[in-house]
Design a protein around this nucleic acid. Structure first.
Lengths: 212, 212
DNA sequence: CCGGCAATGGACTATATAGTCCACTGTTGA
DNA sequence: TCAACAGTGGACTATATAGTCCATTGCCGG
């Protein structure tokens, strides 16, 4: 109530009351899920409306148009993916920790037989060509993601787990690329082993720098 | 009327005469290019029609619906990409040959500032969720591509350039994943260096097995 | 209890796009 | 030269989807 109109510079419209806030969240959740499994382009606003049990006018009250909704979903998904990754990576202090991070990714990939890929990666290849703003938002997310990996590698180096003769930035990029490429291959081939193989190559490369 | 429909096993419709054949090719080329730069979903048949200087009826004479056109484009693009890769890889007989292969990819990526990614990868993430047949066709292309890489690695091993203690299949998968992931990151960040870093990690891993 | 505003529902419009149809043109071989 | 058919052009229809609008409902402070 009191401070509910926190228009924080971002593109947020409305959300004046508790109830409205929940509606907004429901729309966002449904849209995120639909964009993820069906793709942004093949998801109609009517799909979103139905999935979130709302009406046309509510949709347009909260999000003036589809593009705005897309941006909002990108925002939500970025936070969600990055929060998950930050959580998984922050405790990694040795090579088996890194392997466990790998296992977690492979496991969740196996849950749906590889399908559905990476929420950010999928949006990226679908939107980058057509919507500059989406591209930038996703690029920022990828940079942060890569940064998380770089920090992890740097930490391992500082802990003496890895030697110093590698460039954490490049290795972080390689790791993220392997992850994204693994998602693509696994999704396309319906086989999570492809993801595993992709990540393993990257991890093996990293272990090359193990200090023993 | 007679027997207009001489379907020759493959999905090809029409193409009865020299002139018609050219029209068909023009449509296919235009569609391939548009799908590549704008994405399949954002390309309308009218875009294709305009780009290929044809009319609605010609489009539908050659391709009964958009899905058929998409499948045909996938076919064309797969052949094209695989032919290019086969050509580049077949002569690789040592590690610097592999580096040259890398350079070629990075170079062509730089030409358009990273944009546009991989023709197959882009279609894959856009279509895999919605069209099973496309997914399978692309999966086959990826398998062949991976096979090309595996053959190259095996050749290097047989030539004594690499030692025998690695699994060419897994390494091939990793290499392809790095390539695809590199495309995604480079496209999204408009920076071909990301592609270079991704490929370098994979190549560095492979050099780990250099026989010296 | 009531006045007013937030929130809701859903009918309605405009438009883009896939797909159809038919009349016209060009080509080829007898 | 002409018949017959492949190839061409583009107007037309059907439909899906984005986006608008307004009447109704629910909520909350005075």
């Amino acid at each position: 109530m009191s401070d509910r109109n926190h228009l924080n510079g971002s593109e947020a419209t409305s959300a004046r009351t508790e109830r409205g806030q929940q509606t907004r969240e429901r729309i966002l959740d449904s849209a995120a899920r639909l964009f993820y499994v069906k793709g942004v382009g093949s998801t109609t606003l009517d799909d979103v409306r139905a999935a979130s049990s709302t009406s046309k006018s509510q949709l347009y009250d909260h999000f003036p148009d589809k593009t705005t909704l897309i941006h909002a979903v990108i925002d939500v998904q970025s936070r969600s993916v990055l929060a998950r990754e930050a959580g998984r990576l922050k405790g990694v202090r040795n090579l088996s920790g890194l392997r466990r991070w790998r296992d977690a990714l492979v496991q969740s990939n196996m849950l749906h037989d590889g399908s559905y890929g990476c929420a950010l990666g999928a949006m990226s290849s679908e939107l980058s060509d057509n919507d500059e703003r989406s591209r930038e938002a996703l690029a920022a997310a990828f940079r942060t993601w890569q940064q998380l990996l770089v920090e992890t590698l740097t930490r391992l180096r500082d802990l003496g787990v890895l030697t110093s003769d590698f460039d954490p930035r490049k290795l972080g990029t390689g790791l993220l690329a392997a992850l994204q490429g693994g998602y693509i291959l696994a999704q396309n081939g319906h086989s999570p082993e492809l993801m595993a193989d992709a990540l393993d190559m990257a991890l093996d490369r990293i272990e090359t720098f193990a200090d023993r």
